[in-house]
């Protein structure tokens, strides 16, 4: 199993995330995909002995994940886990997240904050957005996915094989879930709890708060009606 950590200017929080992973999940390989950071993200990761792939320029979290998928497939990993660099995700949930994929019960698991009460309370706008996209996904998949924006997911190798070629751009959220379900991959939510990010800036900044819903809605619609490549 490979932990794929997309990171953009995360020197403030990545070291702690990596230390925590070494403590709670030392048996798993870690790949940091540095998506064109201008700070010491890559160096700090290398210092901690994990693999680092560096994008020469910033491409976005989706492309960073794709690089991770490609790496995982080339190196023969059975499962790839998308894990945030910012310290929001708790490594102690990894085993529960990966187990259904490893046992073949489903192809993708989503670490969800909403399946059970986890104490996490997102800002109002974000909650509203999640509600909308959860509705969109439900409409498209006829399956309830409460936490469409969760960045904690496990992917089986066959999913990564497809995703390294064909992947919704920029934000791998609702459009990705719809695209995956349309290809017949089985999704499942696994309850986890998340924390506030420890440092750095989220990929989801204020400036994107209008653009993101528009683009994500359009991409969701397209994922729904496009023929899989």
């Amino acid at each position: 199993m490979l932990l794929i950590i997309p990171a953009l200017n995360e020197q403030g929080s990545l070291p702690r995330t990596l230390d925590e992973l070494r403590l709670h999940a030392p048996e798993h390989d870690v790949l940091v995909v540095d998506d064109g950071s201008r700070d010491a993200t890559a160096k700090l990761a290398l210092d901690r002995g994990v693999e680092v792939v560096r994008h020469a320029v910033n491409l976005g979290v989706g492309a960073a994940l794709q690089t991770g998928f490609r790496y995982a497939v080339e190196h023969g990993y059975e499962v790839g886990v998308q894990f945030d660099a910012d310290g929001q995700h708790d490594p102690r949930f990894l085993d529960a997240l990966v187990a259904p994929v490893l046992e073949g019960e489903c192809d993708v698991t989503i670490g969800s904050r909403y399946v059970t009460a986890s104490g996490y309370r997102a800002p109002l706008m974000r909650r509203l957005g999640m509600l909308v996209f959860s509705g969109v996904v439900k409409l498209a998949l006829r399956q309830k996915i409460a936490d469409t924006t969760s960045g904690l997911r496990a992917y089986a190798m066959k999913v990564m094989e497809v995703c390294q070629r064909d992947f919704p751009k920029d934000f791998p959220d609702a459009p990705l879930l719809i695209a995956l379900a349309r290809r017949g991959f089985r999704l499942r939510e696994v309850p986890v709890s998340m924390r506030e990010r420890s440092a750095g800036r989220s990929f989801y900044t204020l400036g994107k708060s209008i653009y993101y819903p528009y683009k994500n809605l359009l991409a969701s619609l397209m994922a729904w009606i496009q023929r899989p490549v």
Partner: peptide
Amino acid sequence: VEHQIVVRELALLRH
């Protein structure tokens, strides 16, 4: 899209 593919390939090759 092509630019993204090139950057990603380059990153993996460099690694």
